[in-house]
């Protein structure tokens, strides 16, 4: 660790408590992975609720999931996978110092994230019009199961928390876009792009599980 001249030659993004850029990058990334672990366990609680109730009321899930439109669920899966691809391309652009490519890929990602939320909005509104609300507010008569509201409580909690993550992701992408336009990122420093990318891919992975578990039961 012969970095006696580090202070004179250190890049602007390097914080003084790191030996070099690589160590700073690896530390940030590891911190993000630890956050993602807490996210997995956060959603894990809801997956646990899903599994417990599915074991108790298997017929309920088969009946209630007929209210979910597989086509739009599949479209949203494709939209999120597409946005994961553009995030991966954005990181690649940053790594190659192609800032224009980074900005374009961030714009496409934000567009796809909005597309996801618009489709989700119409799915929710369609259910609200039928009286499919969570818990005690449930008034829909079309499912012959006394616990139908339970399925939709779980549905709204899981997709709602996921949707909140997509909205936060949009905010983070806009933040990256503003910084990228100011010239903050380069091949030497793109840590925020990398770790926001990790977050976005996790949001994609959670939807990859939610889609078959909620929409494709029958």
């Amino acid at each position: 660790m012969a970095h006696s001249t580090a202070s004179s030659s250190a890049p602007a993004h390097l914080q003084h408590h790191f030996v070099d850029s690589d160590q700073q990058f690896e530390s940030s990334k590891m911190g993000m992975w630890i956050f993602l672990v807490t996210e997995i366990l956060f959603f894990g609680g809801l997956f646990a609720a899903y599994i417990v109730y599915r074991a108790w009321y298997p017929d309920l899930y088969v009946q209630a999931s007929t209210q979910l439109d597989t086509f739009w669920g599949a479209v949203n899966t494709a939209v999120l996978i597409g946005s994961s691809l553009t995030v991966a391309m954005a990181i690649r652009s940053a790594q190659l110092n192609q800032i224009k490519g980074l900005i374009i890929n961030l714009y496409i990602t934000i567009g796809l994230a909005f597309t996801f939320m618009v489709i989700k909005y119409f799915e929710y509104v369609h259910k609200f019009e039928k009286g499919i609300f969570p818990g005690q507010y449930y008034t829909y008569e079309g499912i012959a199961h006394e616990k139908a509201n339970i399925f939709f409580s779980i549905y709204y909690m899981m997709t709602g928390l996921h949707g909140l993550h997509v909205i936060i992701g949009i905010g983070l992408m806009i933040w990256l876009l503003v910084k990228a336009k100011k010239g903050a990122f380069s091949a030497e420093y793109y840590t925020p792009v990398e770790i926001t990318g990790l977050y976005w891919h996790l949001v994609d992975v959670i939807w990859i599980f939610l889609f078959p578990l909620l929409y494709l039961i029958d």
Binding site: K29, W33, F47, I51, A88, H201, D204
Partner: peptide
């Protein structure tokens, strides 16, 4: 996409452990 294939094995361990504890909870 998350580059774990090329990444430090420590990050992979973090992900695997999250699933281990998730299955423990279930």
């Amino acid at each position: 996409f998350m580059n774990l294939y090329w990444d430090s094995k420590y990050n992979l361990m973090l992900l695997v452990m999250s699933f281990v504890f998730f299955f423990l909870m279930i």
